[in-house]
């Protein structure tokens, strides 16, 4: 279980290149570093639901990413807050 305030990196992984899949981790966040805001609950893994497979519940977190990120736009002090499953997060 991740703690609020913990620094995490979104896995820089691209299952899309390996075959059919459905991923709820946006492309623009792969490999980015953020901060855990809070645990939102545990939910069935959408990567399994998308194929009607048995879908074990996974921990879902609100993770904050400070702007600007890799784009030139975006003002310092502003942030993105995104729902990300634990299996997409690693310690940073």
């Amino acid at each position: 279980m991740l703690e609020a305030g913990q620094r995490v990196r979104v896995r820089d992984d691209w299952p899309e290149t390996r075959g059919p899949c459905h991923i709820r981790t946006p492309h623009y966040l792969r490999g980015e570093i953020g901060t855990v805001e809070r645990h939102l609950g545990d939910f069935p893994n959408p990567e399994d639901l998308a194929f009607a497979r048995p879908a074990p519940a996974k921990a879902l977190y609100h993770v904050r990413f400070d702007l600007p990120m890799h784009w030139p736009e975006g003002r310092a002090g502003d942030a993105l807050v995104v729902e990300i499953f634990e299996h997409w997060l690693e310690a940073a």
């Binding site: 059919p20 459905h22 959408p46 639901l49 998308a50 194929f51 009607a52």
Partner: peptide, 11 residues
């Protein structure tokens, strides 16, 4: 499921 709908749209 809604995730199946989304996968079908992405395809």
């Amino acid at each position: 499921s809604v995730d199946e709908l989304r996968r079908g749209i992405e395809a």
